[in-house]
Structures are given as structure tokens and as C-alpha cells.
Amino acid sequence: MHHVVLERWSRGASALHRRDPRAKLGALVVFLVVAATAHRALPALAAALLALLSAAVISAGIPLAGALGRAALVLPFTAVFGGACWLAGDPARGLALVLKSYLSALAVLLVVSTTSLPALLRGLETAGAPRYLLMVAQFLYRYLFVISEEAQHMSKAAASRGATFRGLAARARFRGAAGALAVLFARSYGRAEDIHRAMLARGFPGHFRTLDTLHFGRGDAVFLALASFAPVVARAAVERFARWPA
């Protein structure tokens, strides 16, 4: 599964893995804005940014083909809209949609596969995102594995029962799926109550206290400066020297 692979990648030990999540988030946002606001010489710029990201992926010790392939998850969706633009007589815009969304997805993927999600959420918290929301996201991610596994068991069980009347009784299968979801819902609810009890048993006072694990050092500042400048310089250079204005 996608998130399991990303989590495995995020346990690496490269220099990029060791950077403070805030430095990586800052550089990510700069990259995304550079890509999102670009409008001239897009193919050349895309090539330059792709080279930049690929270099970072390789330096982080993440398999390049795997990362490029996983970022391509966005392509089916964007290709539809790219195609629509092309049909509407604006192929340049269609191409821009595909290029920009692919590069953005690759950049996000690079950050997530070099940072553990809890560290990323902690970084977002110190950058000003609402802590309550981030705690919810943290629990969501923690129990995503558990509840997904339960869902898989249930859909297997449903399939083994429903396989005999495939195609005949869509209505019955619809009801079966709804019943499975209802059971999953009730179980998840019960799971949440168990978790809350376990929290209370260990003295939960009503709000979360967490270990301070982040340290923004000089190396992080240098990284943030360099990683932010790289895409800006790349874009400026391409827009200045590229022969074909798009």
C-alpha cells in the first residue's frame, strides 16, 4: 500500500531525512508556489524542476523510479482535465495542468518520504496550524492501518458470501455493503471509546502534552535557504534564457 511504502522510505537516514520538518515544509511551499505561478517556457522549466527533485530523491536514498511512479498517481485525474482543455482548443493549458500537478505531487512525495508523518504534523503545529486538527490527523493516521485492515477482512467476508449471486442481486449486494459499513462504523466508534478509556487510565487531563522533539539548527536554516533558492533560480534562469516562449 502507498502509505506503507512512504513510511518505510521515511525511516531512512540521509541528510535530507535529518532536516527539521519545518525547513522541509518551508522549502516545499516555495517550490509549489514557483511551480503554480509559472506560465512561460513551461516544458523547459518542468525539465529543470524535475531534475532538481530527482537529484533530491537520489540523494535521500529513495528509489527514483519508485518515487516517479508513485507521483504519477495524480496523472489519471489530471490527464482527464488536460484532455478536456486540449479538446476545448487550449492544448498549452492542458499540458501545463499535467506538468504542474505532477511536479507538485512529486515534491510533496519527496517531503513525506523523508519525514515521518508525526514529525511533519508537529512541524505544522509550530508553524501555526491548529493543534486540535493536527492531533485528530495524528490519530487518523495511527488508526488508518488498524481500521483499513478490519475493512479488508469485512469486504473479504462479504465477497465470500456474495460471490454466489454476483450480477443477479445488485440490490442485495448494496444492502450487504451498507451493513458491512455499519458494522465497521460501530466497531470504530467502540474502538474510539476504548482508546479514550486507555487515555484516562494513564491520567489524561483533558489536553495532550507531547515530547519536544524538534530542533531547528543552523544546518536547517542553511538547507531552507538553499532549497528555497534552487527552484526560484531555476525558474528565473529558464525564463531568461529559454528560446521558446510558451
Binding site: 495524528q138 490519530f139 493516521y141 474502538r191 482508546i195 486507555a198 487510565a201 502534552r209
Partner: peptide
């Protein structure tokens, strides 16, 4: 100290260290 039957519900923090530190932080 109460250890529940289902560890999956008891270990709710994202890493082992953060989970074990949950109680001491609450103290």
C-alpha cells in the same frame, strides 16, 4: 496501572517512545 486487553487501543501515540511518555507527561 491498567493494561487493557487490546494493545492496539492502548498504544495510541504515533511512536513507541511518545506512547510510553504519555503517562509521565500527564503527571
Amino acid at each position: 496501572g491498567l493494561v487493557f486487553q487490546d494493545s492496539e487501543s492502548q498504544l495510541f501515540m504515533p511512536t513507541v517512545l511518545e506512547d510510553v511518555a504519555f503517562g509521565p507527561l500527564n503527571l
